[in-house]
Amino acid sequence: MAQEVSEKQMKITARGVDVFYGEAQAIKQVDVDIEDHAVTAFIGPSGCGKSTFLRCLNRMNDTIDICRVTGDIRLDGNDIYDPSIDPVQLRAQVGMVFQKPNPFPKSIYDNVAYGPRIHGLTGSKSELDGLVEWALTRAGLWNEVKDRLDKPGTGLSGGQQQRLCIARAIAVQPTVILMDEPCSALDPIATATIEELIDELRTKFSIVIVTHSMQQAARVSQKTAFFHLGDLVEFGDTNDIFTAPQDERTQNYITGRIG
């Protein structure tokens, strides 16, 4: 009974998830709960499956032909791999920010307005303007770009591009945002800006972030999951993971002995 009560507060629950690329198994029997209004970090050495697992949460793996996902993943209690679920609609609810900033070759305004236009979120031009301003403001970019909204998004700096991609994702009004190493292509100053932004976005969204940097995981997340060779080794409060890891492999990774 206590178990059920705790699951009700969870945004996403994953049970017994396996992922295969052709014959190779990339993820083995992973169970994870993603809390609402919190930041969950996935850490682990390269090739451990953390990005693969992240991409299961909005079914981005569907776009890869040889990829096969089994197990049970629920968003707000609904099985997202149920045949009645439209993966395209799912991705409007579970937004994604990628490793390399990937603004479209369009103006800054059109980049942010892309999602709302596709989903018909706004009725009028002024409503759309308001939504774009809101998204850019939440992404901490409004003041820097408000005078050049018609300039191409590709002309911004790397850090600005990544914040533009975050603005683009939140403009669709998702409830969960997945971030796949969002700072790995950025310099330390841009990284610090994005980390502050993530902390702020937590008030409205559930955030899942894959990161290579343990310091980043420690700084921004409340929950941390440690993946190793396709296994979820340890999952718990970030503080506990970094101060009192239960598993020897976690201990070795966070002290820099493997990875």
Binding site: T63, R91, G95, M96
Partner: peptide
């Protein structure tokens, strides 16, 4: 990455091709 960005925002394949 541009296609992924568009799919990640909940666009269909045809929308992605036409608009991105």
């Amino acid at each position: 990455s541009l296609r992924d960005g568009s799919y990640g925002l909940g666009a269909t394949k045809a929308e992605t091709i036409r608009q991105v």
